[in-house]
Design a protein around this nucleic acid. Sequence first.
DNA 1: GACAGCATACCGACCAGTCGGTATGCTGTG
DNA 2: CACAGCATACCGACTGGTCGGTATGCTGTC
Lengths: 242, 242
Amino acid sequence: MLWFPMASAAQSESRDKLLDAATHLIRARGYTATRVDDICASAGLSKGSFFHYFSSKEDLALAAAQRWNEQTGSLFATAAYHQPADPLERVLAYIDFRKSLLHGKVPEFTCLMGTMVQETYETFPAIREACDGSISGHAATLEADIGAAMQQYKLHPSWTAASLALHTQCVLQGAFILAKAKQGPAVAAESVDHLRRYVEMLFTQPQPEENRHGNRNRSGPGRDRSGRHSRPGAKNSRGASR
Amino acid sequence: MLWFPMASAAQSESRDKLLDAATHLIRARGYTATRVDDICASAGLSKGSFFHYFSSKEDLALAAAQRWNEQTGSLFATAAYHQPADPLERVLAYIDFRKSLLHGKVPEFTCLMGTMVQETYETFPAIREACDGSISGHAATLEADIGAAMQQYKLHPSWTAASLALHTQCVLQGAFILAKAKQGPAVAAESVDHLRRYVEMLFTQPQPEENRHGNRNRSGPGRDRSGRHSRPGAKNSRGASR
DNA sequence: GACAGCATACCGACCAGTCGGTATGCTGTG
DNA sequence: CACAGCATACCGACTGGTCGGTATGCTGTC
């Protein structure tokens, strides 16, 4: 086989088989529950082969993260949602594209990074960092379009393009969790619909006055329907959340 | 000690210690990576004691889920966000309340259910079901307020109260993932801000025409700024997502 | 013959779950 | 009250199997 030095890609077929098997298994069972032997069996290779390519299981996870970035990177880079001239249309087309990917079995449309970071954020700093980089990096590809749309629609909101870009990823990650809990993409798609509606409204309609506690523009009277602030009163110091 | 039969609560101090330790460890490291020995050590009890109260690790997870429901259930049931007369204000106050809980270390404000379901949805059906029930059940407590707000504001939208209620949980779960990736609650809070803005806009402003692919009301011309539909063109069948 | 690619056999730590045992306290009966 | 009978609470050594990782060797190719 010819040996193109193509920016860390095309390293070895067996290596890729291991990475693909690992990606699939981790998406289905999580990082810790995925055994090295499972990966080898699923890839049709032996343990010796595994440790020929990866120095450890963690090393494999990092390599899988990198491969994930390359694959999803090119998928999104070449996708059709970049075509519209209007930047807002591009953002909405991105959301539509994400929605269109939500089909099939759960482990086939969920996110490797979101899955891994849940279990590793405290115990495997390197993996956490890779997941953060992947998610944040992907969000960053939306920022330019969002920023351009803000300019075009002459918006000067309290939120930033970066924050809205991250919010899209937030909704997607949350949608994956709901999809896992409910065993199918239907719920996820509905949340993506809500996300789309939000973005559309953000750019085409006047935004509500900020009447939050702890916000920069402790706005004037405005249209605050009640003036009540929920002022937590959290007697329970242990955060509780679902 | 007197023995109130108080609806499955107050079973045993040691049992609760084990459940608390398990909850904390699972929130930090995930279900699989949390060892029974870790739980025992953290609770200051022995393994014999553990298996006296729980027949297996999975049994513990289910018990922890139930305890979680009881604890968060009463936290939310007694919280102040129910006070406003206006149902929309109650929903917004709920969101504010959720935001106010986002502080401290990551494992202290993230969700046990969202964490567990990620690793167990394929391999531990009973745990998956418990997580689904917990999240969906909590979402259901919002439905009445959302529905009342829809009536009061005379909304007849394409979305349902149930779907919006689930969307709030979607954003929260996604926010927890971002918080884990970024090691702090700041990102999470920003996404909750977006969620609040969305809900506020939904009820106080005209909603955009639906111009999605695959939507029921293939609306008339309306205010569709371009008419383009991103019509996926996904040549790649393997779902890719982050 | 050097080395990438891959396999088999094996190691030692670890881990869920078991088991025999002790300590404590409650209950009813004479 | 005394005491048998029994259940609960808890301990920690042990087991059988698992898992990440290592050691070693075979094979084909440049």
